[in-house]
Computed example of a mutant assay.
Amino acid sequence: MQVNFFAVKRRNSFLYCALLILLTISAIIITEYDVVKGFTSIPKAIEWASANFYPNEKALKKLPVIFDTLIETVLISIAATTVSAVFALLFAIFGSKTTGVGGVLSQLSRAIATLFRNIDVAAWSMILLFSFGQSVMTGYFALFFGSFGFLTRAFTEAIDEVSNSSVEALRATGAGYFSIIFQSVIPSSIPQLLSWMLFMVETNIRHATIVGILTGTGIGFLFNLYYKSLNYSSASLVVIVIVAAILLIESISNYVRRVIL
């Protein structure tokens, strides 16, 4: 039986690899993509970037404006994450197997979370453009909805990992539903919940750049403005500032995770 199992596994792996290769070749043929030209253009792209895509003295004068826009983007990302986390925790409690009330409410909570999670932030930006236009609110709600779907799923799994023994012990003492949640489930899950929130803040700062290009706000809009006006020096400075900010925030969040976990 063990020999047959490994044989079936190897056969399935071979079939999946063959299917992947077939799909790749089909895509190349359909799109008429020149593979050789694509690879040979990489050195030329690096050469162009080395000659044009670097900040100069004129670009450095725009650093205060870039910093102000970056701070605005970071604050919007943090606000969208924290507010969505509150709603996500509520839906996670109702949808969790440990704390869920069951029935239609639990199914509805999981269904809403699944719907919001499977719509990309960029898609939310385009949808919300019809309602709010190119404004900060469009970017905020796009990040909010994307964060809500992801955090609801993450929070639900974190709550489900809580040991049922403490929940059963409180139920045996006659504790009510809200007492169990606030005295057992949430305190036990707080480290994981905070860790997921920090991860979402990092992710939203990255997403905010793309969202800003679509909504005409934030650091993404500034990069798009400089790039389209052929001001590559200033555009490169925006990229450097974004990368530095992401690395700094990631370092801070990693430190906080080590402390709380």
Rank of each mutant, 00 (worst) to 15 (best):
Q2G: 10
V3N: 12
V3M: 13
N4G: 11
F5M: 13
F14M: 13
L15I: 15
C17V: 14
I21P: 02
E32Y: 09
D34S: 07
V35H: 03
V35N: 09
T40V: 15
S41H: 12
S41Y: 04
S41L: 14
P43L: 11
I46Q: 11
I46V: 13
E47H: 06
E47W: 15
A49N: 09
N56Y: 08
E57H: 08
L60K: 15
K62E: 14
L63R: 02
F67E: 05
I71K: 09
L75M: 06
A79G: 03
T82C: 15
V83T: 14
L89P: 05
F91R: 11
A92S: 06
F94R: 11
S96L: 01
T98Q: 13
T99L: 04
T99D: 01
V101C: 09
V104P: 10
Q107N: 13
L108G: 11
A111N: 09
A113R: 00
L115Y: 08
L115K: 07
L115A: 03
I119G: 07
I119L: 01
D120W: 01
D120N: 09
S125A: 14
I127Y: 13
G133S: 07
V136T: 05
T138K: 04
Y140Q: 06
Y140M: 03
F141P: 02
F141D: 10
A142Q: 00
A142G: 11
L143Q: 04
F144I: 06
F150T: 15
T152K: 00
A154E: 10
T156G: 14
I159N: 07
E161H: 13
E161V: 14
V162Q: 09
S166E: 12
E168M: 05
E168Q: 08
L170N: 03
I180A: 09
I181R: 02
S184C: 13
V185Y: 00
L194M: 14
W196N: 13
W196G: 08
L198F: 08
T203M: 10
T203P: 05
T203G: 13
A208Y: 00
V211A: 07
V211Y: 02
G212M: 05
L214H: 04
L214A: 08
G216L: 09
I219L: 12
G220Q: 07
G220L: 08
L222E: 07
F223Q: 08
L225V: 10
K228M: 06
K228W: 07
K228I: 08
S234F: 01
A245C: 12
I249Q: 05
S251K: 08
S251H: 14
R257E: 11
V259W: 15
V259T: 11
